[in-house]
């Protein structure tokens, strides 16, 4: 049984991340605006948007069904579960057993599933296309992610995210080459999931991949907006936990947690800058090209797997 400390840490961590999600998206927006040398909305703009939306009426298309209605709730719930499972401030998983690699991957898959399902369920053709695209992307990216993380798990000898991070960070894995390759592939796949250029532009709602959002309004939309940023943040946290767990605390002392928090914020900041730079240096790739790139990722992941087999 998890102890109270663990549970409370998990809750705190989850809520913290949820609360910080609009902030994160806001910061990336500001960064982008700076790079475009224009004055964008302020850092807190996303909070203002959410609050405004919460006050609006919740409308739904006549053809929409259960999936459409349930999706925002399910998504937020699933993401919150992930947020409790992934180690953020600590090395170890907050609630042991929950932070299993496979659990987390499937939770992400559920998010994706409902997200695209809602698009199909809305009855709008635009949203439908968006939903199917989202599924295609999942098919393309998921194998790479699973394979590369599987290699990491095999190398670390555990599917516990915390243990994997620990093993990789301290170099207690047999094959450096395989870890590097698997890491590269996993990060590559995660980049897809972030929904950034050149593959997607999550905040531009008219983009097709965000199609499922187009029929939502009011509080549902607000929830979804928060969830999008939340998801990005969680993906990053997930990657950090496995590949760059440095800085996070190895115990649950307050000082350790604070240091962990600081390290996490620093990592996020670095990534945000890097993402900003990447997003501004590439153009939007045609959706048709995406499979090629994702295949490349799968290739890297399989190479990592082969490296693991050959015992490099």
């Amino acid at each position: 049984m998890p102890t109270l400390t663990q549970v409370s840490l998990a809750f705190v961590q989850a809520l913290l991340l949820l609360a910080a999600a609009p902030l994160f998206t806001g910061i990336t927006r500001v960064l982008r605006a700076k790079m475009h040398t224009r004055r964008g909305p302020g850092v807190l703009q996303d909070y203002r948007d959410v609050i405004k939306l919460l006050r609006r009426q919740n409308l739904q298309p006549p053809a929409a069904g259960f999936a459409f209605r349930a999706m925002p709730t399910v998504m937020i719930a699933a993401l919150l579960t992930i947020a409790m499972a992934v180690p953020v401030l600590t090395r170890a998983v907050p609630i042991p057993g929950l932070g299993d690699l496979i659990t987390v991957i499937y939770l992400f898959a559920i998010v994706r599933f409902f997200f695209s399902l809602s698009g199909l369920d809305s009855g709008s053709s635009f949203a439908g296309i968006g939903g199917s695209r989202e599924l295609t992307l999942g098919v393309l990216v998921e194998p790479t992610l699973v394979l590369s993380l599987l290699v990491c798990a095999l190398l670390a000898g555990s599917t516990d995210i915390g243990a994997m991070g620990e093993a990789i960070a301290t170099g207690h894995v047999r094959s450096a080459g395989a870890v590097l390759l698997a890491g590269a592939a996993a990060i590559f796949a995660c980049y897809f999931e972030l929904g950034k250029l050149p593959y997607d532009m999550a905040e531009a709602e008219q983009e097709l991949q965000e199609g499922p959002l187009s029929e939502y309004s009011g509080p549902s939309l607000a929830l979804l907006k928060v969830a999008m940023g939340f998801k990005q943040l969680l993906i990053l946290a997930f990657v950090f936990a496995i590949f760059v767990p440095y800085g996070s605390s190895s115990d649950t002392s307050l000082v350790g947690l604070l240091i962990g928090l600081a390290a996490f914020i620093a990592k996020i900041a670095v990534v945000a800058v890097v993402l900003g730079v990447v997003e501004n240096s590439v153009a939007r790739a045609r959706f048709r090209l995406t499979p090629r790139h994702s295949w490349f990722g799968l290739g890297i992941a399989s190479l990592a797997f082969v490296f693991y087999i050959s015992g490099l």
Partner: peptide, 18 residues
């Protein structure tokens, strides 16, 4: 062949050679 296939090819080759 595309880079992706090249990488897969490399994986296959490594496997066979192993």
């Amino acid at each position: 062949i595309s880079p992706a296939v090249t990488v897969l090819l490399a994986a296959v080759v490594v496997l066979l050679c192993t």
